[in-house]
Design a protein around this nucleic acid. Structure first.
Lengths: 95, 95
DNA sequence: TATATAGTTCAAAAATATTTGAACTATATA
DNA sequence: TATATAGTTCAAATATTTTTGAACTATATA
């Protein structure tokens, strides 16, 4: 049993990040693939501009919902499920 | 095992509703008491005006996170835990 | 070297969300 | 009946979020 701490601020960031249709679709897409995917591939799949993609990835990353690996020109993202667990799955425990 | 359906729109409403410090505090307060509480009592505990309270309760209600019972002049609210379960606790199952 | 590709940054515009106070409805009580 | 209480509604002001395109950095490739 692991003791969790999280500030209200962190939770707000997570809920804000999930409170947008594009970002929720990105999460759904990543959860189905369940491996690293490049930002370009995701932007294409979501039909959004790269500028818009860049904005939304930043918000997801700052909420801790995705983690990011830079490989040369490209950026690969993957879900960080521990953050979902902490804030969603174990919502009542950590409130 | 119960089959769940939920639209993206519903999920967005829930996450938006939780993406605000006042509303998250209201949820925390209600979860600790775990029984019906009047809007007035909550507004007082949160130190917000009744107008602001009214606004936030509406958003929580429209997201399905609280249910409401009107008794004469007063309005009593209580958490609807099934909505939290559907959208948070069982996030991955229902995505 | 020249050109293409992946992604970022910036500022302006547009869209949404929140706060505020005044006026309101409905019910309770002196 | 007069007054107080609980909560709603409205519109204006403010704050925050999202979109957009142009200019940019860094890397790859012809």
């Amino acid at each position: 049993m692991i003791k969790q701490t999280q500030t209200t601020e962190e939770s707000i960031k997570v809920f804000k990040a999930l409170a947008d249709p594009i970002r929720l679709e990105i999460v759904k897409y990543l959860s189905q693939l369940d491996h690293e995917v490049s930002c370009g591939e995701i932007s294409q799949a979501m039909q959004i501009s790269k500028t818009s993609g860049s904005y939304h990835f930043k918000i997801l990353q700052e909420a801790g919902l995705i983690s990011v690996r830079k490989v040369a020109r490209e950026k690969y993202v993957i879900l960080d499920r521990s953050t979902f667990d902490r804030h969603l799955t174990h919502f009542w425990q950590n409130l």
